[in-house]
C-alpha cells in the first residue's frame, strides 16, 4: 500500500523553514552548536539542506531533477540537486535518520538500504537515478509496534554497543537472509562483510542473523 504525498521542492539552500515546531534532536544539536558560535555560515539546519551551502550560494543554481520514488511504502516526488545521494535525501530531506553516514564512500555499510529488495549503499546512490524505485530503510522494517524479527534478534543477542552501524547491519542482514547466504556462521560473516562494526560485535551480529534465518 502506498500513500501519496504532495510534491516537495528543493528547499532554499540556507533553509530555515522547519515545519515542525517541536525541536528534534538534530535541530537541537544544530541550533545549540550555532548558538555556541561554531557554525557561522548559513545552512545550519541540516534537516532541510539538500545542496552544499557553499556551492549553492553561487549565483547559478546547480542543476536539479525531479524524481518519484517510494520510501517505506510512501510515494514521494521531489526535485533534488543532481548531486544529492539517496542517503542525504533520506536523512536531510525525508528526516529518516536511521540510515547512517559512516564513511560516505561505500566502505562501511552504515547507510545500507534495500532498493527494489536488494541491499545497496545509499551513500553511493544518486537520488536522481531512483525514478520508480522502492526503497526500504531501517524505519520501514517494523510492522507498527511489532519489530522485524531481525531487529528483535539484535536485542535478544545483544548485538550492538554504540549502535551506529546497527541500522545498516540490520538492513544488510535482512538482505543477506533473503539471499540465502546464511548456511553457516562463516557464510554469514563473508556475506555481511560489507558492514563494519568498530565496536567489534561481529560474533553477536552473526548470532542475530542466524537466529532470524533459522526461524524462516
Amino acid at each position: 500500500m502506498s500513500t501519496e504525498l504532495p510534491e516537495s521542492a528543493v528547499p532554499p539552500p540556507t533553509g530555515a523553514d522547519e515545519s515542525s515546531s517541536a525541536p528534534s534532536r538534530r535541530t537541537f544539536i544544530a541550533t545549540s552548536t550555532a548558538v555556541g558560535g561554531v557554525v557561522v555560515a548559513g545552512g545550519v539546519f541540516a534537516g532541510t539542506v539538500l545542496a552544499d551551502p557553499e556551492e549553492a550560494s553561487a549565483a547559478e543554481k546547480p542543476p536539479s531533477s525531479r524524481v518519484s520514488l517510494t520510501v517505506n511504502g510512501t510515494r514521494r516526488t521531489v526535485t533534488v540537486d543532481n548531486r544529492t545521494s539517496l542517503l542525504d535525501l533520506l536523512r536531510e530531506h525525508f528526516e529518516l535518520t536511521g540510515s547512517k553516514k559512516g564513511c560516505n564512500a561505500g566502505a562501511c555499510g552504515a547507510c545500507t538500504v534495500l532498493i527494489d529488495g536488494q541491499r545497496h549503499n545509499a551513500c553511493l546512490t544518486l537520488a536522481v537515478r531512483l525514478e520508480d524505485a522502492e526503497v526500504t530503510t531501517v524505519e520501514g522494517l517494523a510492522d507498527g509496534d511489532q519489530l522485524h524479527p531481525l531487529q528483535q534478534a539484535f536485542i535478544d543477542q545483544d548485538a550492538f554497543q554504540c549502535g551506529y552501524c546497527t541500522p545498516g547491519q540490520i538492513v544488510s542482514g535482512v538482505g543477506c537472509i533473503k539471499e540465502g547466504h546464511t548456511n553457516s556462521p562463516e557464510e554469514i560473516r563473508e556475506w555481511m562483510s560489507g558492514n563494519i562494526c568498530r565496536c567489534g560485535c561481529y560474533v553477536k551480529i552473526v548470532r542475530a542473523v542466524e537466529q532470524t534465518a533459522g526461524r524462516k
Binding site: 536488494q118 545497496h120 544488510s172 562483510s193 560489507g194
Partner: peptide
Amino acid sequence: SASAQLRNM
C-alpha cells in the same frame, strides 16, 4: 570482490 551491497550495484 567488494561487498554484497556493492556487487548488487
